[in-house]
Structure formats: structure tokens, C-alpha cells
Simulated assay, not measured.
Amino acid sequence: MNRAYLMLIGSVFLWGLTVVPMKWTLDTVQPFTLMFLRLLLASLLMLPFAWRGRRQSPESSAPIPWKRIAMLSFTGVAGYFWLNTYGVSLTSGVNASMISATLPLFTLLLAALYLREQIRPVQWMGLLVGICGVLLITVQPQAGGRHSLWGDILVLASQLIWTVYVVQLKRPQGEEKLSRELFTALSFLLGSLMLLPFAAWETWHHGLPAVSTRSLLSFLFLVFCCTILAYLLWNKSLETIAAAKAGIYLNAIPLFNVLTSILFLNEGMSWRTVTGGVLVLAGVVWAERRSPASRHAAEGL
């Protein structure tokens, strides 16, 4: 196996470890505060290197489309992290991981509605099977009551808003002239600023977070490994591997998150979760058999 595929697998593996450190950090840190600090620190660490690369690039004179990046940050950064992190704080890691596997299905649906891309009958069947799987996972009387249901809904909404972001990227309006590093760093920075009022409100009502050793190490792992390192490995691998081919590997992320949630969070799996997860993954595989749109979902990362 060559170096590019090792970096690709490494990035997918790190993204597949996100749920556990997020849950551990949420033990002592409020959701909005966690999102704000994670995005802000990642952007401040990435921005100097990304800006230096821009100055050395032949396209250094290209203007930065601030309004466009702000709009993309609203959906793909602030909106996604707002819904996903808050949802994870309310539901189980297993449920959140299984529901996150619906991303290709939403991409397929929005590509048809927004980009007018044709969906074949076999893809509609895959979408229907995936939706049935989501319903089995979320509608569980024994899953922890109303809070778990709302958490599932928020995680599901985060996949939908991320798909909106991906579809927006398929019609670029100037952001394609920026390097991936600079675009991501600026998106993180603007996204953190959008979340700042919510984090400030949270701190006002709940006070400063009580930092423990486990929550601090988990937060640093989220920032350096699950955010910065995973992105750099993914970006580097795409220099050799086509995005459509690399995107197939993203389907392994929910499986890693499920396994780590069971191992480290001591979470169980009901028959509904297992059956629903199988249906979601089957629907994704079925829909992606002839779906260039869903395979290109990785281009938004």
C-alpha cells in the first residue's frame, strides 16, 4: 500500500475517533463553548501556515471572497458543528455514529433537487432503505427518552446542513481560487466567530468550564488529531487519489465511531440500532453504485 492511501486511511481513522473524545470533553465543557474553542484554536494554528503558502502562490493576488466564505461557514462549519456537537451531547455515541452515515444519501437527494442531477430508480430505492434505517435508530422507546430522540434529530439535521454546504461547493463562486488550507482555516475562523455569542451566553449562565485531565486531553486530541492532522492527511492524500475514490473510504467513519463508542463509552446496541445501521449502510452502498454526486461529498471536507 502506497503512502497516499496510508494517509487517506489515517485521516478516516482519526475522524472515526471523534465521538469518544467529544463525549469526554462534554462531561465538563458546555457544547457551544467546546465548538467555539475547537474551531478558534484550529483556525489560529492553521492560518499562519496557510497564509504563508498563499503569499508564495502564483494566485496570491486573487481576492478573498469573504461573503461567500461566510455563507459557507454558516452551513458547513458553524451550523454543522452547532447541530452535531449539541446532538452528540444529548444522545449516545452509537446512535450519533449510525445516523452520521446518512451523509451520502442526503447528498444524493439535494443534488437532485438543487443541481437537477438525475436519480435512477435504484438510487431512490437506496435512499428509501436508508430512511427506514434512520427511523429504526431514532424511534426507540428504550433509547433514553426524549433527550435521546432530540439528540438523534440534531445529529440528523447536522448531516442535512453539511449536505447543503457540499452542494454549495459544487457551484463555486471564487473560493476555488484559494488553497484548501487557507479556505479551511478562514472557514474555521469565521465559524468560530459565529458561535462566539452562544459560547458567551453559555459561560454567563453556567460559568467557566471545570477542566479535568481527561476533558483537557480529549479536547486537545479533538483539535490536533481529529481536526488539524486528519484534515492535513486527507488533503495530502487527495494530491494523488481522486476525490471520488477517496470519498468511498468515508463510509468507514461511522463504523469506527460505533466501535470506539462501545469500547470506551461502554455503550450497548439494541436490535433496532443494529438493524437500522445495517439498513443505512446498505442504502448508502446501493445508492452509491451509480451516484457520482454522493461520491463527491468528500470534496467538501
Rank of each mutant, 00 (worst) to 15 (best):
A4S: 15
Y5A: 01
M7L: 11
G10A: 10
L14V: 10
V19W: 07
V20A: 08
K23G: 10
D27A: 06
Q30S: 14
T33K: 03
L34C: 12
M35H: 04
L37D: 04
L47A: 09
F49H: 07
S57D: 15
S57N: 13
P58Q: 01
I69N: 03
I69S: 02
A70W: 06
T75I: 09
A78T: 08
F81Q: 13
N84R: 02
L90S: 03
A96Y: 15
M98P: 15
S100M: 06
L103E: 13
P104N: 10
Y114A: 04
R116I: 08
R116Y: 14
C132K: 00
G133F: 13
Q140L: 06
G145T: 08
S148T: 14
V155A: 04
L156W: 06
R171S: 15
Q173M: 10
L178I: 11
T184S: 13
L186H: 11
F188C: 14
P197K: 00
A199Q: 12
A200Y: 15
W204M: 09
H206Y: 09
L208H: 14
A210R: 04
L217I: 10
L220I: 09
C225R: 03
T227K: 02
Y231A: 00
K236M: 05
L238S: 11
I248R: 10
I248Y: 14
S261D: 06
I262P: 01
T275S: 12
V280T: 06
V284H: 01
A287R: 01
E288Q: 12
